[in-house]
Design a protein around this nucleic acid. Structure first.
Lengths: 190, 190
DNA sequence: ACCTGAACACCGTTCAAGT
DNA sequence: ACCTGAACACCGTTCAAGT
């Protein structure tokens, strides 16, 4: 599994095919389909199934490749949150960014809710996100706005959970309310 | 779809087959399998697939039949919570019961996270649970321990979400912590 | 090297044929 | 009436055969 943007050592035509598959996969995922069948992608991209598997060794790997840009953007947001002069605002920003990213991008939601990563780059991004989240949490804890026992993995799991809560309802207008509930719930007990 | 406990107007042997299927389905589900394939159930129960479908018109209907006893127990818990002399304790009891039920019974988790019910009895139970939850919420709101805008459906969605958060981690020891976070988060903002 | 697509082992669901 | 199990349309994944 390589980066979606022009992996090194790949022939021009092969890179073109790969780009077309990723574009078509993104289109299928954004069309509302919750899952992304390999055979459906092959047909949509006009290639054989084997070609899909040559570039993405499994459905999970495909989702990770698709999620990578959004994942990187989320890491950037988390780092910015860690540098926010207001630790409480940084904390809220981190949660909001994580939740928004998952609600906007189904592939990112799938990757974040799955424990083990298939490709190296995804694992690296997870590591980086964890480190940024740790800094956000340390500062928020020092400022007394989060419980002492909250870990970066708690943030991951709870935002995944809130995503499910938001999506299992008709309207998505409850995002802000549920985000408030999560932020308040993470505050230290009085 | 009828009640799993001896539906009316069913021949003795048919009722026996139905009971065996439900018992085997329960066994499969508790064995850790997250989903319950109809063909696998047929093989395990020693019947043809058609027989499974004769009793349970779909996989969702099967899950609902399987969930019914637990669902009824949860409704009873919710009613008890509504009668708790302490409204705050009643609120916590409701959330704890809903969460515990979903973590213990995969079929109940599936049913609660699915919006529409296939069988009448499941829909009725959902109605009853909603009414009990409304009473719990009304009293908790009057006592000032929950936000004014929380609805019974919020409780359903959020407990489903917290279940996902609990399950997406290695250990299930975080139930109590996540429950605290949810209870605190539902408190009125200061 | 890279691609194709038939093929395998699974899903949920249906339905003609049996008792 | 009730049951059986082959069959259909799908999944993810593999691999011999082609360019």
């Amino acid at each position: 599994m390589e980066s979606p943007a022009r992996p090194a050592g790949l022939r021009a035509d092969s890179a073109r095919v790969r780009a077309r598959m990723l574009a078509e996969a993104r289109r299928l995922l954004d069309s509302g389909d919750t899952d992304l069948p390999m055979n459906a992608l092959a047909k949509a991209a006009g290639v054989g199934v084997g070609t899909v598997y040559r570039h993405f060794p499994s459905n999970q790997a495909l989702l990770e490749a698709l999620a990578e840009p959004g994942y990187a953007a989320l890491v950037a947001m988390a780092r910015a949150a860690a540098d926010d002069p207001d630790p409480a605002a940084g904390m809220t920003d981190l949660l909001r960014a994580a939740l928004h990213a998952q609600l906007t991008d189904a592939s990112l939601a799938a990757v974040l809710s799955t424990p083990g990563a298939t490709c190296r780059s995804t694992r690296d991004l997870g590591q980086e996100l964890g480190e940024a989240a740790r800094r956000v949490l340390d500062r928020a804890r020092a400022a007394g706005v989060v419980r002492p026992d909250v870990t970066p993995d708690d943030v991951r799991r709870l935002t995944c959970g809130i995503r499910h809560a938001v999506r299992s309802g008709g309207n998505l207008d409850d995002v802000d309310r549920y985000l408030e509930i999560l932020v308040d719930g993470l505050r230290p007990r009085p």
